[in-house]
C-alpha cells in the first residue's frame, strides 16, 4: 500500500507487508529522525476528549521533525458542544493544516473525519474502537526487543496477554496484527474478563496456537513478552470482587524468577497496580521504553502520509 496522503484509521486496514514496512520506517526514524524533514508542514491536533500522553507523543514527533502544530486539547469546551458537526469542523481545519490527528470519544469518528477531508487523517483513538498508532508502537516494541523471533523459520514468539481481555482495545488490535506473524499466544484473565470469541476465531483462521489460563504463574516462565493491561473497577458491579481480581493480576518482583532470557513486560500505560514499582528497576521492565517508542512510530507515520517513505 502506498501511504502518501492515506489516512491511518484502523489496524484492520493494513496487510502484513504494510505493517512490516511501517515498522522499518520507524526504525529509520530512530536514526534520522531529528532532522527538520517536515519543516513547513502543519499538523492539526484535534483532541475532542483529553488524552495527554497520546497528544504529547504526537506533538513531540511533529515538532522534532521541524513541523508546527495547531489544534485543541480540551474537547468539550470547543464547538462540538455547540452542536457543530464533525464534518464541518474537519472541512474547516482541512483548509489550515496538512495532516489531521483526531481523538474522539465516539467510535467511527476518525473514519468519518477521513471521509470529510482530502487530507490524511490519523486516528489517535476513537472511543473503544481503534488506536492504530498504539498498536504500531506495541508491535515495534515487540520486534525491537525480539527481532530474531519475527522470522518465520525460528521458534514462535510466545506472548501472554493479561488483565482486561474482554474490553481491552489495545489487546484486541495487537493480537489481530500479531496474528500475521510467527507467534503463540497465552490469555491470562479472570473468567469475567476473557477474550471475546470473535478474536479467537481470527486466530484459528490464521493458524495461531493459543491458550486461555486463569493464573499468571502458569505462563510467566513460558513467554518472551507479557503484555499487561489495566483492570477497571467499573467492570465489576461488586467492589470487593474487583479488589480480589486486581490482586490476582498484579506483577511482583518475585514473579520474575526463572523467566526466559530477554523476557519483557509491556503495558500500554497508565498503570494502576498491575505492576509493582520494584519491577521498574529490572531488565524485564520495558513499558517506559515502549511509550517512548511512540515517538519514532508517530514520526514515521506522519512522514509517510505527508511525504512517502524515508530512504536509508
Amino acid at each position: 500500500m502506498k501511504l502518501k496522503y492515506k489516512s491511518i484509521i484502523s489496524i484492520n486496514d493494513f496487510s502484513k507487508d504494510d505493517i512490516v514496512y511501517i515498522l522499518k520506517q520507524a526504525y529509520r526514524m530512530e536514526r534520522h529522525g531529528n532532522e527538520p524533514i517536515l519543516q513547513g508542514k502543519i499538523m492539526a491536533s484535534l483532541f475532542f476528549e483529553p488524552s495527554t500522553r497520546t497528544r504529547l507523543s504526537f506533538e513531540t514527533a511533529m515538532l522534532r521533525l521541524g513541523g508546527t502544530i495547531i489544534g485543541f486539547a480540551e474537547g468539550d469546551s470547543t464547538s462540538t458542544k455547540k452542536g457543530e458537526s464533525l464534518y464541518d469542523t474537519i472541512k474547516m481545519v482541512s483548509r489550515y493544516a496538512d495532516v489531521i490527528v483526531i481523538r474522539h470519544p465516539l467510535e467511527g469518528a476518525a473514519r468519518l473525519a477521513s471521509e470529510s477531508s482530502s487530507l490524511p487523517v490519523i486516528n489517535a483513538g476513537d472511543g473503544t474502537n481503534q488506536h492504530p498508532t498504539q498498536t504500531f508502537l506495541d508491535l515495534y516494541s515487540i520486534f525491537k526487543t525480539h527481532p530474531h523471533l519475527v522470522k518465520q523459520k525460528n521458534r514462535p514468539l510466545d506472548i501472554a496477554f493479561m488483565g482486561d481481555l474482554k474490553y481491552g482495545r489495545t489487546v484486541h488490535s495487537l493480537l489481530t496484527a500479531l496474528s500475521f506473524f510467527n507467534c503463540r499466544m497465552w490469555f491470562v484473565s479472570h473468567p469475567t474478563l476473557t477474550i471475546p470469541d470473535s478474536y479467537l476465531q481470527i486466530l484459528t483462521k490464521r493458524n495461531i496456537e493459543f491458550y486461555q489460563v486463569e493464573a499468571m504463574e502458569d505462563v510467566i516462565r513460558k513467554v518472551d513478552v507479557l503484555y499487561a493491561t489495566r483492570i477497571q473497577a467499573e467492570r465489576f458491579p461488586d467492589p470487593i470482587e474487583y479488589e480480589q481480581v486486581k490482586d490476582l493480576y498484579r506483577l511482583r518482583r518475585e514473579n520474575l524468577l526463572n523467566t526466559r532470557e530477554g523476557f519483557k513486560i509491556m503495558h500500554p500505560l497508565p498503570r494502576v497496580t498491575e505492576i509493582e514499582a520494584e519491577i521498574d528497576k529490572t531488565e524485564a521492565a520495558y513499558y517506559f521504553e515502549q511509550a517512548a517508542n511512540g515517538i519514532p512510530v508517530r514520526k514515521a507515520l506522519l512522514y509517510l502520509v505527508l511525504k512517502g517513505g524515508l530512504r536509508d
Partner: peptide, 12 residues
C-alpha cells in the same frame, strides 16, 4: 446497534 457509534450522533 452500537449507541457509541458516530452514525448515531451525527448526520451520517
Amino acid at each position: 446497534p452500537n449507541p457509541q457509534c458516530i452514525t448515531n450522533h451525527q448526520d451520517v
